[in-house]
Simulated assay, not measured.
Amino acid sequence: MSAPRIAVLVGSLRKASINRRLAHALERLAADRATFVHVEIGDLPLYNQDDDDAPTAQVVRLRDTVRDSDAVLFVTPEYNRSVPGVLKNAIDHGSRPYGQSVWAGKPAGVLGASIGSIGSALAQQHLRNILAYLDMPTLGQPEVFLHVKDGVFDDDGGFGKASRDFMQGWLDAYLAWIARHGGPSRD
């Protein structure tokens, strides 16, 4: 079986985002076992149903990237105890027009990082509710509510000694989840 192609959506637009750092560290950990395709969501217009019949190039890019992927990884911070608006906007664009959702059936992984001790737990719970409605089989265990402190990341952009084994376990479970729920659609 070929390596799965994973669309990665990071719910933070900040260049120095710790969640973007988390996504890139996971990608490094996966090495050749998966292909990560980072999806730009910061340039999407606000979702408006009036635009369903004439989506912008950015919306078409989002839909095509997700449609051409085997799975989706959501890496999200927590804003005001929920999902960041930019991430919800991307999800809304991909789910419309009604009946043409690009999300349906795609195995999902949800994780997040924060300098706070609950590590994006409430945002992840809200996101899981949304993904259940969108018919995305979502890995339930293990969960990752990463509390970012010294030692979580190393100086080279990977995981530090304090988190590497835990994150390897999560990644192994997620790749097995993808294989169990469809795996690579391209050969």
Rank of each mutant, 00 (worst) to 15 (best):
residue 86 V to G: 13
residue 19 N to S: 10
residue 118 I to F: 15
residue 17 S to L: 00
residue 47 Y to W: 12
residue 91 I to F: 15
residue 140 G to A: 12
residue 97 P to A: 06
residue 184 P to C: 07
residue 141 Q to W: 06
residue 148 V to M: 02
residue 73 L to I: 08
residue 105 G to S: 14
residue 162 A to M: 02
residue 130 I to N: 06
residue 132 A to P: 03
residue 94 G to P: 09
residue 101 S to F: 12
residue 57 A to H: 10
residue 183 G to Q: 05
residue 113 A to H: 05
residue 57 A to T: 09
residue 24 H to D: 01
residue 52 D to K: 01
residue 2 S to M: 09
residue 3 A to V: 00
residue 133 Y to R: 11
residue 19 N to I: 04
residue 77 P to Q: 07
residue 154 D to Q: 04
residue 88 K to A: 13
residue 95 S to T: 09
residue 99 G to P: 10
residue 36 F to H: 04
residue 65 T to E: 07
residue 57 A to I: 04
residue 28 R to F: 03
residue 142 P to V: 05
residue 9 L to I: 13
residue 182 G to N: 10
residue 83 V to E: 03
residue 171 L to Q: 02
residue 149 K to E: 06
residue 172 D to C: 06
residue 172 D to P: 02
residue 153 F to M: 00
residue 178 I to D: 04
residue 92 D to A: 11
residue 166 F to W: 04
residue 173 A to K: 01
residue 26 L to V: 04
residue 107 P to E: 07
residue 128 R to L: 07
residue 118 I to Y: 14
residue 73 L to F: 12
residue 95 S to C: 11
residue 24 H to R: 11
residue 179 A to M: 00
residue 109 G to N: 05
residue 167 M to W: 02
residue 23 A to S: 09
residue 52 D to C: 09
residue 38 H to L: 01
residue 187 D to R: 14
residue 15 K to P: 15
residue 37 V to R: 06
residue 54 A to G: 11
residue 92 D to S: 10
residue 141 Q to C: 00
residue 23 A to F: 09
residue 149 K to V: 05
residue 88 K to W: 10
residue 183 G to H: 12
residue 59 V to M: 08
residue 62 L to N: 11
residue 107 P to I: 06
residue 140 G to E: 02
residue 122 L to V: 11
residue 95 S to P: 07
residue 26 L to F: 14
residue 43 D to L: 05
residue 69 S to W: 08
residue 13 L to A: 15
residue 77 P to M: 04
residue 12 S to R: 09
residue 157 G to Y: 10
residue 65 T to Y: 08
residue 61 R to D: 12
residue 96 R to W: 13
residue 105 G to H: 15
residue 136 M to Y: 13
residue 131 L to T: 12
residue 67 R to W: 14
residue 186 R to N: 13
residue 75 V to K: 00
residue 127 L to K: 08
residue 91 I to L: 15
residue 162 A to K: 10
residue 167 M to D: 03
residue 113 A to Q: 03
residue 93 H to K: 10
residue 148 V to T: 05
residue 1 M to I: 04
residue 101 S to H: 11
residue 9 L to D: 03
residue 151 G to H: 03
residue 35 T to L: 00
residue 42 G to P: 08
residue 135 D to A: 15
residue 42 G to I: 04
residue 137 P to K: 11
residue 150 D to V: 04
residue 118 I to M: 12
residue 162 A to P: 02
residue 124 Q to P: 10
residue 39 V to N: 08
residue 136 M to N: 14
residue 166 F to G: 00
residue 58 Q to F: 09
residue 123 A to N: 05
residue 19 N to D: 04
residue 18 I to V: 12
residue 46 L to R: 11
residue 119 G to V: 02
residue 44 L to G: 14
residue 119 G to W: 02
residue 80 N to K: 14
residue 16 A to I: 02
residue 88 K to L: 09
residue 104 A to R: 15
residue 145 F to K: 03
residue 187 D to F: 13
residue 46 L to C: 09
residue 4 P to F: 11
residue 130 I to A: 14
residue 95 S to R: 07
residue 114 S to M: 04
residue 5 R to A: 10
residue 74 F to A: 05
residue 175 L to N: 01
residue 98 Y to H: 12
residue 35 T to W: 00
residue 139 L to E: 03
residue 63 R to C: 14
residue 87 L to F: 14
residue 137 P to A: 12
residue 110 V to G: 08
residue 21 R to C: 01
residue 63 R to F: 14
residue 27 E to M: 05
residue 133 Y to F: 15
residue 70 D to T: 10
residue 180 R to S: 12
